[in-house]
């Protein structure tokens, strides 16, 4: 379970995240939806302890990211956006390295890597050096690496970016399976179809603030529109709605 309360992050004079609060429960897929630059990545980065918030607090399974970051990290599997691999290591070695830094025993790590390679359909390239991987192969490897320690909470920043249809389907299948096993899944996206297809709960973020929070149906009802897209455009506010209408989308 992930709990964020009034998270604030400033870069110089710009306030990127301005008091974001939400709750992502276990056994649910929660989507952070918002236009580019809304503060989704920054929010996630504060949750996975790479950035320190300037205000607010967050807990992973009740563990504070501020006071016990190492313990919080143990409870998270993280796929940052554009996550890179070690080019001279094979996919399997990339996974095993992260397992070793989670303190896993070698035999346990090997078994788990093998299991993930099967689940994510990685057999073909598992023992090739990561240097020449396609985007899909890279994301799968990075995802396996993030899941190697059986994290209760899984955080993914724009995980479907650059993936083809088949890879996206594999990823969705995996995330649903993890949800059904009771994991807490939190992912960010700026693609509405993505969120509509996958999420149980949507947190709409605009200008560093939570614009709306609820199930896709609730959001449609809240905005009084038929499609989630229109609901989104109404919810993110006037300025973004204007820029969206200039792009040919009527609110």
């Amino acid at each position: 379970m992930i709990d964020a309360r009034g998270l604030v992050k400033r870069f110089g004079t710009v306030t990127a995240v301005d008091g974001v609060s939400f709750n992502a429960p276990d056994g649910r897929i929660t989507g952070l939806l918002g236009p580019n630059g809304a503060g989704k990545s920054t929010t996630l980065r504060m949750l996975y302890t790479v950035l320190a918030p300037d205000g607010g607090e967050a807990w992973i399974d009740g563990t504070s990211v501020l006071t016990a970051p190492l313990e919080a990290r143990r409870r998270m599997g993280v796929l940052p956006s554009g996550a890179g691999l070690y080019p001279h290591l094979t996919a399997r070695e990339n996974i095993l390295y992260f397992a070793s830094l989670h303190g896993m025993a070698r035999s346990e790590a090997r078994a788990r890597a093998e299991e993930l390679i099967g689940q994510l359909e990685m057999r073909e390239f598992a023992d090739r050096a990561a240097k020449g991987f396609s985007q899909g192969e890279r994301v799968k490897t990075a995802l396996a690496r993030a899941l190697v320690h059986h994290p209760r909470n899984v955080l993914l920043d724009e995980p479907t970016n650059g993936l083809d249809v088949m890879a996206v389907r594999t990823l969705r299948g995996l995330l649903r399976r993890l949800r059904d096993q009771g994991h807490c899944i939190l992912f960010s996206s700026h693609v509405m179809q993505e969120v509509a297809a996958l999420c149980d709960t949507v947190v709409v973020i605009a200008h560093g603030k939570v614009a709306a929070h609820g199930a896709p149906d609730e959001l449609r009802a809240q905005a009084g529109t038929e499609s989630l897209e229109e609901a989104f455009v109404r919810l993110v506010g006037i300025e973004d709605a204007q820029s969206a209408s200039e792009a040919g989308i009527r609110p």
Partner: peptide, 14 residues
């Protein structure tokens, strides 16, 4: 530059 630093920093290691 490769983008492997950020995932590395999410591991429970100081």
């Amino acid at each position: 530059e490769r983008g492997s630093l950020e995932p590395l920093l999410t591991l429970p290691v100081e």
